[in-house]
Simulated scan of single mutants.
Amino acid sequence: DALRAAHRRGARTVSICTGAFVLARAGLLDGRRATTHWRRTGQLAAAFPEVSVAEDVLYVDHGDVATSAGSGAGIDLCLHLVRSDLGSSYAAQVARSMVLPPHRDGSQLQYAPPPTPAGPGTDASLAPVLEWALTRLAADLSVGRLAAYAGLSPRTFARRFVRQVGVSPGQWLLQQRIDAARSLLERTDLPVEAVAARVGLSSAVNLRRRFHSAVGTTPGAYRRLFGEAGTA
Results as ranks from 00 to 15, higher is better:
Ser142Glu: 05
Leu152Glu: 09
Ala138Pro: 00
Ala150Lys: 02
Ala150Asp: 00
Val205His: 01
Gln175Ser: 12
Asp189Ala: 15
Glu131Tyr: 09
Ser153Arg: 08
Asp140Cys: 06
Leu141Lys: 03
Val167Met: 10
Leu173Glu: 01
Leu137Val: 04
Ser168Gln: 06
Gly200Trp: 05
Gln171Tyr: 09
Trp132Glu: 03
Gly151Asn: 04
Ala194Gln: 11
Arg159Asp: 03
Pro169Met: 06
Ser183Ala: 14
Ser153His: 06
Pro120Gln: 08
Thr135Phe: 06
Ser202Gln: 12
Gly200Glu: 01
Val192Cys: 02
Ala147Thr: 03
Leu130Gln: 12
Leu201Val: 07
Val167Gly: 00
Ile178Arg: 01
Leu184Ser: 01
Ile178Val: 15
Val165Leu: 03
Leu190Ile: 12
Leu152Gly: 03
Asp140Arg: 15
Arg163Thr: 13
Trp132Ile: 09
Arg145Asp: 02
Trp132Tyr: 14
Arg155Gly: 04
Glu186Tyr: 14
Leu184Cys: 04
Leu173Trp: 09
Tyr149Asp: 01
Leu174Met: 11
Leu190Tyr: 15
Gln171Glu: 13
Leu201Gly: 05
Leu173Gln: 03
Val167Phe: 07
Ser125Gly: 07
Asp179Pro: 00
Gln176Thr: 04
Leu190Val: 13
Arg198Val: 06
Gln175Ala: 14
Asp140Lys: 15
Ala138Thr: 07
Leu190Asp: 13
Thr188Ser: 15
Ala194Lys: 08
Ala194Asn: 08
Gln164Arg: 06
Gly166Asn: 02
Pro169Val: 13
Arg187Ala: 08
Leu173Ile: 11
Gln175Lys: 12
Ala127Val: 09
Leu126Ala: 10
Ser202Thr: 14
Leu207Ile: 09
Ala194Trp: 02
Glu186Asp: 11
Thr135Arg: 13
Val165Cys: 03
Leu152Lys: 04
Ala204Tyr: 03
Val199Thr: 05
Leu134Met: 09
Leu137Pro: 10
Glu186Cys: 06
Val205Pro: 00
Ser168Ala: 12
Leu130Lys: 11
Arg177Gly: 00
Leu126Ser: 10
Leu201Glu: 04
Val143Phe: 00
Ala196Thr: 03
Leu173Phe: 11
Leu141Phe: 08
Ala196Arg: 01
Leu174Tyr: 00
Thr188Lys: 10
Arg145Trp: 02
Tyr149Asn: 02
Ala150Phe: 06
Asp189Tyr: 15
Pro191Ser: 05
Gln164Val: 07
Ala194Tyr: 05
Ser183Cys: 05
Leu190Ala: 14
Val205Asp: 07
Val143Tyr: 00
Val129Ala: 06
Ser125Lys: 06
Arg187Tyr: 13
Trp132Pro: 01
Ala127Gly: 00
Val192Arg: 10
Leu184Glu: 07
Ala158Tyr: 08
Ala138Asp: 11
Val199Gln: 02
Arg187Cys: 07
Leu184Asp: 00
Val165Thr: 13
Leu130Val: 06
Ala197Trp: 07
Val129Trp: 08
Ser183Met: 12
Ala148Ile: 05
Leu207Cys: 01
Val192Lys: 02
Leu152Asp: 01
Ala204Ser: 14
Trp172Gln: 07
Ser203Phe: 04
Tyr149Gly: 00
Gln164Thr: 08
Pro120His: 12
